[in-house]
């Protein structure tokens, strides 16, 4: 059936296909004038179809929430055997009694049950790389107006930098840097920020997500206000995507225990 139908489809790359003639040219011709954003994809994503994108962010948020909800276990009843390494002698201590408290000394280092020694080169390299990756991610978010990029891409890169730390060191190191509570709050906060910008537009007298209405408040032209609105919502998107990436990774890799994984 699909093959039969495909015989009536327009030829690949045909500039006169109906899809190119109806709404798309209007976007192309008007986007720069109306939103001061040369990247038409970004303009449509965050402005013309900004309502879609808000729910897209909500999809990400709900996926993170679902993973958290499905997997996170907080029972302290049976953490299984715990392993520690004595740094001076390189001996591994295995503790089977779950109620036994381990003093927090610099001589003992907690470790995973399937532990393979990690290469110092990899650890050092990823530690150095991570800040640069994060910087690049911020560039991608901020430069979405002018080049391919934007909140989703930037957020994914930002999240990947944390996952890199988790991979090269271990999950505990990653979770120390981004505590669960922080990312748990950041993920809905991203959506809230996006929707909040929309509410601000309502308060400023426009329709929901009509960034042009903000022009009066900031004393700028409508196009510039739209451009600013796009930047603001992209930041919300990036925060949500970054936090959700870490949530999904942490919960999946450790089956919800957050103690060890991969």
């Amino acid at each position: 059936m699909l093959i039969h139908a495909a015989l009536e489809f327009p030829v690949w790359g045909d500039p006169n296909a109906p899809a190119h003639l109806h709404v798309a040219p209007e976007y192309l011709e008007r986007a720069y004038e109306e939103t001061a954003t040369p990247n038409v994809v970004t303009a449509i994503l965050a402005d013309y179809r900004g309502y879609d994108t808000m729910f897209e962010t909500a999809v990400i948020f709900s996926a993170g929430l679902a993973c958290f909800f499905l997997l996170r276990t907080r029972s302290r009843k049976d953490p299984g055997d715990r392993f520690f390494r004595h740094l001076a002698t390189d001996m591994v201590i295995r503790i089977q009694n779950p109620s036994m408290k381990i003093p927090d000394t610099p001589y003992l280092q907690p470790m995973d049950s399937f532990w393979t020694p990690r290469s110092t080169i990899v650890r050092a390299a990823s530690r150095v790389l991570a800040p640069f990756i994060q910087l690049y991610a911020l560039y991608v978010v901020a430069h979405g107006h002018y080049s391919p990029g934007g909140g989703f891409q930037g957020g994914v890169i930002l999240g990947a930098s944390f996952i890199l730390i988790a991979l090269s060191h271990d999950l505990r190191t990653c979770m120390r840097q981004t505590p669960e509570k922080l990312i748990g709050v950041l993920s809905p906060a991203g959506v809230l920020f996006y929707a909040g910008v929309g509410i601000l537009c309502v308060l400023a007298g426009g329709n929901f997500l009509d960034y042009g209405a903000l022009a009066g408040w900031f004393g700028m032209a409508r196009e510039a206000a739209r451009s600013l609105g796009i930047l603001l919502v992209e930041m919300g998107v990036a925060a949500c995507v970054m936090a959700t990436m870490v949530i999904i990774y942490a919960n999946l890799s450790s089956a919800g225990g957050h103690r060890q994984g991969l």
Binding site: V23, Y48, Y51, G206, F208, D210, G212
Partner: peptide, 11 residues
């Protein structure tokens, strides 16, 4: 109209 855009362009 979301974002104040008329139908075929906006949602």
């Amino acid at each position: 109209s979301m974002g104040g855009w008329a139908p075929p362009l906006g949602i």
